[in-house]
Amino acid sequence: MSTLTTREIENRLKGTGAKRLVVTPVLAPKQIGDASVDVRLGNQFIIFRLHTCGVFEPYKMLMSQLHTMQERHVVRFGDSFVLHPGTLALGSTFEYICMPADLEAQVEGRSSWARVGLQVATATSVEPGFKGVLTLELSNVGTIPLRLYPGVRIAQLFFHEAKPPATDAYTGQRKYECAIGPEFSKIRNDRDGSVFAGPIEE
């Protein structure tokens, strides 16, 4: 699986038609590195209201319970969001991404942030045909609270060719589509998961 380097990334960004890669807006040319594109932190966050539930039961909880346990925050550009040690928040990329059918991408946190304890992504792959902002799972595994500013470069995207190109790339069959902010887990929609969520005796 070959990784796209700078020139090919640039060609894809400038391109038209089915092979075009969209990362919009790229605020600074330096975001495009040797084999990656830096992405910035968006200004919407989802945090978890731990006092509202005892345990996360993905296949048995009501929708209302799911809504109750999450809280959305919008932070002004220019303000900050503080992530404390041991906590998880969902953020998203500022950039909106459109993947062509013949590319997939991997999200990785920037090492600069990792060195102070910030893990940026745990579910890292971006499928061919994806459209939307990327939800980032932000967790502070360090020992000091971290102040995060919307707009800062937070992660990198590495692009790889997908061979052969995906035929039904993101055509409405997927869970997350044209998202413009972080989206909560839709794991309860995994029909096969519920098969295992109960005793096996008839």
Binding site: L13, K14, V22, T24, V26, Y96, C98, K131, C178
Partner: peptide, 14 residues
């Protein structure tokens, strides 16, 4: 094409 209309033209001329 399901792209937000936030910029005119394409990179790097947008």
């Amino acid at each position: 094409n399901d792209i937000p209309p936030n910029e005119v033209d394409t990179w790097p001329d947008s």
